Amino acid sequence: MPPNLKNIIVVLLAVMLVSSCERGPRREVLNGATMGTTWSVIYRSPNTDGKGISPEDLQVLIETELVAINQALSTYIPDSEISRLNRAAGETPVVLSPRLTKVLNAAFAIGEKTEGAYDVTVGPLIELWGFGAQFRESEPPSNADIHSAMASVGAHRLSLDASASTLSRPAGVAVDLSSIAKGYAVDQLHELLLAQGIVDSLVEIGGELRASGERPEGGPWRLAVESPDPSRARFIEALSVSNAAVATSGDYRNYFEYEGRRYSHLVDPRTGYPVAHELVSVTVIAGHCMVADAWATALLVLGLDGAIELAESEGLAAHFVSRGEEGLEVHYTELFDAYRQNTQTKEEPTG
């Protein structure tokens, strides 16, 4: 989880990230910073009779939970659990916390279903191409360097025993959960709110969202998928969501150009090279944000045809934006259609 905005790839907007939302009856808005980005929570307050948690106390609980999540999953914290795991002696089983076990188990499952297109060991390639924590000039690495980095990539080299909560890994193979951690954190905040009796809420971290119940004013949450071409339209899809999580991955914000060629931040762990296909962004709606987060990244790596085929076979509600001969083209699975609003409306999402 980077300490800056450089690696944010999810671009789904909700209510313009709460900045345009005004408090209404029983509506509360909390926000802050975490994971190199921002978080926000909009909710219908149950505290109408002087009972229930106050916004101030809820803010403290949320920030405490986010610190705990970072302490487990952030590779940018030297003494975090995942940093210590990556420093452990090779091949030695390391006992994991329930938190880390849960996230790794979900990541491995999606990696297997994509036959390696989603891989939490891709970090060395991300760094090599200049999209990681260490800045490098915007110039492609050599084939030899790519080949060398590939020796440390491959989740199949890891051995996770979820029942025993242990992980074994060869020396030099590191785990990076930045492609799933924000989604997990959104789910955890959702659970935290439910524990406080808050059933109507919208939780957002870096554009990853989970909507619960209804808007404070009534009705489902109204969200929007940002257009990859803002010069033509601000949003490319309007959504109506309740009791579901939404995540988007896009290749159009973080890239560099060299000798007339565009290199995306999204590196295919199977080849060692940035993806180079017509698929621009993927939005996934699922029951849990952790799942939606990882699937959005995985499908974007696969490319349009492979992504649509896998999304349909896995029963995913997925939305795809691709580059066509005449501009951007929109595709979506049958399950996604149920969440779409009238895209011709001029009304912007209001949360």
Rank of each mutant, 00 (worst) to 15 (best):
L66A: 00
V280C: 14
R262D: 10
R99K: 10
Y76M: 12
L30Y: 03
S242V: 01
V199L: 03
E312A: 10
R232A: 15
Y339Q: 02
L279S: 10
A238E: 12
T114C: 08
A338H: 10
I77E: 13
S80G: 05
S45H: 03
G183I: 04
A117M: 09
V95G: 13
V291E: 15
R234K: 14
M1S: 06
V120Y: 12
Y263A: 09
R27V: 06
F235T: 04
V41G: 00
Y43V: 01
N4S: 08
H147W: 05
G306H: 06
I77V: 15
L302Q: 09
E139S: 13
G90E: 13
H156C: 06
M290D: 14
A311Y: 11
E208A: 07
R253S: 08
P55H: 14
V11C: 09
D293A: 05
E191Y: 04
L30P: 05
S242T: 14
Y252R: 09
N31F: 13
G111R: 10
L302C: 10
K6V: 13
I62T: 10
L279Y: 07
A14K: 04
V225Y: 09
L61R: 14
Y273S: 12
E28I: 06
Q188D: 11
V282F: 04
V267W: 00
S240T: 12
T283A: 12
G260Y: 04
D200L: 07
A174S: 05
N254K: 02
S212V: 03
A89N: 09
T48L: 04
Y43G: 04
T101R: 06
A14N: 06
P46Q: 03
I198L: 05
G218N: 07
P140S: 09
A286H: 15
L167Q: 01
R234Y: 11
Y118S: 14
R261H: 14
S40Y: 00
D49R: 12
M150P: 06
S201K: 01
K113C: 14
N70F: 03
M1I: 06
D79Q: 15
V284L: 13
T37F: 04
I205V: 02
F336R: 12
S163I: 04
V199W: 02
I69Y: 00
D145C: 09
L125K: 05
L177F: 00
V60P: 03
L158M: 11
R270Y: 05
L160P: 03
K6H: 09
L128G: 08
S159I: 11
L30D: 01
A109N: 15
F256G: 06
G250M: 03
P98C: 07
S178L: 07
A164I: 00
E191D: 12
S212I: 01
V60A: 15
R26N: 07
A307Y: 04
S80F: 02
L85C: 02
L209V: 08
P269M: 00
W129Q: 01
S240L: 08
W129D: 02
E334P: 09
A133G: 07
P98E: 10
Y332F: 14
L304C: 00
I198M: 03
E127T: 12
S142W: 08
D57W: 13
S40R: 00
R23F: 02
Y43L: 04
E325A: 13
L223I: 15
H277C: 07
E214Y: 06
A171T: 04
E139H: 11
V10H: 08
T343D: 11
D145P: 06
H319P: 08
R44V: 00
V175M: 03
N254D: 03
D57V: 13
L192K: 00
M35I: 01
G24N: 06
G303F: 09
